[in-house]
Design a protein around this nucleic acid. Structure first.
Length: 520
RNA sequence: GGCGGUGUAGCUCAGCCGGUUAGAGCAUACGGCUCAUAUCCGUAGUGUCCGGGGUUCAAGUCCCUGCACCGCCA
């Protein structure tokens, strides 16, 4: 059995979800769906990060308990993910009991083996960012380089995680595992950061209470990142693993794929592997650092008022339209621009005209010329067309491993064009059903189109599960997300041959998949 | 300031180890079809491949340099 563990970051509940949250999650979902479809045992985790000073403050301002705030905010993420058809296996919250236990266990273990030690921190601190700063890194006037607010001088007791001890090991690991950090240019950034030398990381705070207390020392609360990163172990059942009752734990762990935004790569590519080293566990297989979405060329920000609520897009155009846009518009790793123009073009030209219309015209012809039946084995198939689908199938696995979504979609749409062209060129509407030769030609064309559309439905399933389901409904074939169903790309051709051998009726009616967006 | 990256058709980008008339999608113009969501197909393009210098029989592709933009670190 092949294993695949994919995670999104856990999202901080001080704000409601935006396009960026949707993006990370859709990437993970697309990968998870493909792997599941290909027969992997998949565990897909997302969730919310609920501790920390910001939450405590925001809750104070609203006059409620931090947990109440988290309870109300985490639901918004769940709702969005449900709207987007995110097929997560677990939605974790850092306030979940098993997570708190994992963090405590891990902290205690590292304290015992000396990788965590108590010491004193003296220096600069940015309270809003919960970050310790070096004197040199302060910008003019003693301000935090990240947020620009004044930093304050603090002297406090703190627990530290030894990073220097594992610096060499981390460097070796990164250099010997070429696919560890994607894309490549991010790997170079991480390498140069590590090479400059790592300072031990402060992993506790005494200035607030909303967090997991340090075991045996209630004055300290565990730093949010130390807490948050461990969610990836909690989800796999870290505690039952320690009790020797979790045989899958290590298999999933070694096939871990973290999806993160470029802003939090450092935490995942430096601190997290070191935490795992210290715990005697192996680092993730890959970390994908994706780019950010700009809005009409500008960085998203609340003050500019240009934050798009993904919920609104989904309500207007459907989950699949948003999923498709997010995954096709950006070459993975780079930033992208979200603007009405490019969204409309991708929707109208790609989804409505090319794909939607292809399905629509094929269904119409099957009904008009073949009594709504896909011809069975007595009809021929056009090998040249179907071969194109097989070529695409063959390259799929490798390209998913690179998260090359834009390229995969490009090729899927190339195949869609091939099929549109094939139909135009062979012009079934000109054939005379009463002429035997025309008749067999007609059936061959219709069958080829039907089988091709089934392939297309398979191809788009990870990207647009809802549309894939609609196409399968139209064809009267079970959807790809039936529990337990899998179809390895390598087996697809045989499977299709059997499936279409006897011929069958398609649905009597089918809906327009993507109504065109019309301009006023 | 240190390290790294990018600069190619109107737009977004692809061009691996240097080698025939530099590509794709979208947008534009014209033509064809009518099964289809006024959809689909075909044809036509346009480019000082950022500027300058160099290596080579041959450079968008390698080297140096200048400019512009971006990322990480400080």
């Amino acid at each position: 059995m092949k294993y695949f563990y994919v995670t999104t970051p856990i999202y901080y509940v001080n704000d409601k979800p935006h396009v960026g949250h949707a993006y990370s999650t859709v990437i993970a979902d697309c990968a998870a769906r493909f792997k599941r479809l290909s027969g992997y045992k998949v565990f897909f985790q997302t969730g919310t990060d609920e501790h920390g000073l910001k939450i405590e403050k925001e809750a104070d301002a609203r006059g409620i308990a931090p947990k109440e705030l988290a309870d109300s905010m985490h639901i918004k993420f769940k709702e969005l993910f449900s709207d987007l058809n995110i097929s997560y296996d677990r939605f974790i919250r850092t306030t979940d009991a098993d997570h708190v236990q994992t963090v405590r266990t891990a902290f205690e273990k590292l304290l015992k083996n000396g990788d965590i030690y108590l010491s004193e921190y003296e220096g600069w601190y940015c309270t809003p960012c919960e970050t310790f700063l070096t004197e040199k890194s302060l910008s003019e006037g003693g301000k935090c380089p990240q947020c620009g607010r004044p930093a304050s001088k603090v002297k406090e007791e703190s627990y530290f995680l030894k990073l220097d001890k594992y610096e060499k090991k981390l460097l070796d690991f990164i250099e010997n595992n070429s696919g560890f950090i994607k894309p490549e240019f991010r790997k170079n950034e991480v390498l140069s950061f590590v090479k400059e030398g790592l300072k031990n990381l402060s992993i506790s705070r005494t200035s607030f209470k909303w967090g997991i207390p340090v075991p045996g020392d209630d004055n300290h609360v565990i730093y949010v990142w130390f807490d948050a990163l461990l969610n990836y172990l909690t989800g796999l059942g870290h505690e039952t693993y320690l009790e020797g009752r979790n045989p899958d734990f290590e298999r999933f762990l070694e096939s871990t794929n973290h999806i993160v935004g470029k802003d939090i790569l450092k935490f995942h590519a430096v601190y997290w592997p070191i935490m795992l080293f210290a715990l005697g566990l192996r680092p993730p297989k890959t970390i994908l650092a994706h780019g950010w979405w700009l809005m009409d060329g500008a960085k998203m920000s609340k003050s500019l008022g240009n934050v798009i609520d993904p919920k609104v897009i989904v309500e207007k155009f459907g989950a699949d339209a948003l999923r498709y846009f997010l995954l096709s518009e950006i070459t993975i790793g780079l930033d992208g621009d979200f603007n009405t123009g490019s969204f409309t073009v991708r929707y109208n030209s790609g989804l409505a005209n090319d794909l939607g219309n292809l399905v629509s015209r094929t269904a119409a012809m099957l009904r008009k010329y073949a009594d709504g039946k896909i011809p069975g084995k007595n009809a021929g198939e056009d090998a040249a067309v179907l071969n194109e689908a097989l070529v695409l199938l063959n390259g799929l696995g490798e390209r998913y491993d690179r998260y090359d979504f834009a390229k995969i979609l490009e090729d899927i749409f190339r195949f869609i064009n091939i099929l549109n062209k094939y139909i135009n060129d062979s012009a079934p509407w000109k054939l005379n059903i009463n002429e035997p030769e025309d008749r067999s030609n007609l059936f061959k064309i219709l069958k080829t189109a039907a089988v091709s559309i089934y392939y297309i439905s398979y191809f788009i399933y990870p990207f647009m599960p809802e549309t894939s389901g609609k196409i399968n409904n139209m064809l009267n074939i079970k959807p790809f997300d039936l529990p337990g169903f899998s179809l390895d790309p390598g087996d697809a051709a045989d499977y299709c041959e059997k499936l279409f051998k006897n011929g069958f009726s398609i649905a009597e009616k089918s809906e327009i998949l993507f109504p065109r967006i019309k301009f006023e």
